Simulated scan of single mutants.
Amino acid sequence: MKYLKRLLVVIFVIYLLPTFATAGWWAIQDRPARWSEARWSSAQILPQPGESEEAAIYVFSAATGGMKGAVASHAWIVTKDKGADSYTRYDKVGWGSPIRRNHRPADAFWYSNTPQLVAAITGVEAELLIPKVEGAIAAYPYAEPGGYTIFPGPNSNTFVAYVLRTVPEIGAVLPPHAVGRDYLPDGEFVHLDADGRDLHVTLRGLFGFSAGARSGIEVHFLGLVAGLDLANPGIKVPALGRIGL
């Protein structure tokens, strides 16, 4: 019983306390009440696609709408072929055909929230990786209508995390508040990334851990992530995100 109490205290301090604090702060902010009132235009983060001949890959994440935004974000992928004069954006959404292409500007606000640039690759490296990214998107196992579950997944973050695990050369993991990112397809319990540098062990994204060069050390509890970023020293805090040291 003593050890159970200690465990509950640890769970409360590490996972629930920052989540409740973030939710309280979020609740008092002035935010759009409805989808139609939110801002969805470009946040002017990316250069105009015609400004450079280089190929590019970008991964974005932004807080979602309503009270969900206190603890959860939405991720998407953007590509640009060499010499192209436009970007191609891929999202997974919860209505209609789940994988959407160019349904918003590449770097758009999401429910009025400014997107965070998670990864950026340009030049020859991006040119070589784009076919792999497109192959991973085409192979995503939950791309049909009905292939979306907001919690624990598969959701928008499950989709982007799948691509990042399949193409580890992108060298990124989604932030801790990307709830659903640790949901592994097809009931998989253990997954080793294609390059062998990150290991994921999870029960439907609810309980588990990740460890490796990109993930650092992470422990997942009910979709919330806490851990240490070793490659770029920092701590991963549930609901808040990564805090650099």
Rank of each mutant, 00 (worst) to 15 (best):
L4F: 11
V10H: 12
V13C: 12
I14G: 02
I14D: 01
Q29E: 13
R31N: 10
A33V: 15
S36E: 15
A38K: 09
W40T: 01
P49W: 13
A55C: 02
I57L: 10
Y58E: 03
F60N: 04
F60Y: 05
A62H: 13
G65T: 05
K68E: 14
G69I: 00
V71A: 11
S73F: 01
A75W: 03
W76M: 00
I77G: 04
I77R: 11
K80C: 06
K82G: 08
S86F: 15
Y90G: 00
Y90V: 00
D91H: 01
K92V: 08
G94S: 11
S97G: 03
P98S: 02
R100Y: 12
R101N: 01
A108D: 01
F109E: 05
Y111T: 02
S112I: 04
N113Q: 14
V118A: 03
A119T: 12
A119L: 15
T122Q: 12
L128D: 12
L128R: 09
L129Q: 06
I130A: 10
I130R: 13
E134H: 13
E134P: 01
G135Q: 09
P141A: 00
E144H: 10
P145G: 01
P145W: 02
G146V: 14
G147K: 05
I150G: 15
F151D: 06
G153Y: 05
P154M: 04
N155D: 08
V160T: 09
Y162V: 06
G180A: 00
R181C: 10
D182I: 02
D182T: 10
D182M: 05
Y183G: 03
P185N: 05
D186Y: 08
G187F: 15
E188G: 08
L192R: 02
R197L: 08
R197I: 01
D198V: 02
V201A: 07
T202S: 13
T202E: 13
T202I: 01
R204L: 07
S210H: 12
G212D: 08
R214H: 09
R214C: 15
R214I: 11
E218C: 08
H220P: 05
L224Y: 14
V225W: 00
L228K: 05
D229M: 14
N232L: 08
G234D: 06
V237Q: 04
P238I: 04
L240Q: 05
L240W: 12
L240A: 07
G241Y: 11
R242P: 14
I243A: 13
I243T: 13
